[in-house]
Amino acid sequence: MPKLTSEQVKQLADNMLHMTNALGDYRYENFDKLTEDENKKIKEIHGQMLNYTTELYTKSALLTMEDIESSLAQIDTISAKTRQLYKSLTGVQNVIDQATGVLKIAAAILSLDTTQISASIKKMIG
């Protein structure tokens, strides 16, 4: 037998809630006509039905996992690709920055400017 989907379970929970509310309304409208025992019994059943209904809503929420698994994996893959693309595009700027740093050191060495050499190295590794 095929399993129920999250949406089917949610639909069942909605229907159950309507029936439960109808039972509650019956008791509230006939409160004075019902005996104390009848009131107590209907109140108990009403309470239990409410508990089952809320459990059904939770069950439906849990079942969504089965419906979304492949979509989650697809979006995860695409997000990973966007991160990779971002990394490679910002990588170009890093390469330019690093090359500029190396060039600065080279220029300082060639001009024999020791202060500049030290400053450039600090900037590169900082």
């Binding site: 999250s6 949406e7 949610k10 929970a13 909605d14 809630l17 439960t20 509310n21 509650g24 509230y28 109140k43 009403h46 309470g47 409410l50 209904t53 809320t54 809503y57 939770t58 439906s60 929420a61 969504t64």
Partner: peptide, 21 residues
């Protein structure tokens, strides 16, 4: 949307019923 406005909202409807009960 199903989980929040459907299922969680349904649980809040139940809460109303329980409070009335």
């Amino acid at each position: 949307r199903l989980n929040l406005n459907g299922n969680l909202n349904g649980k809040l409807e139940v809460q109303k019923g329980k409070a009335q009960n």
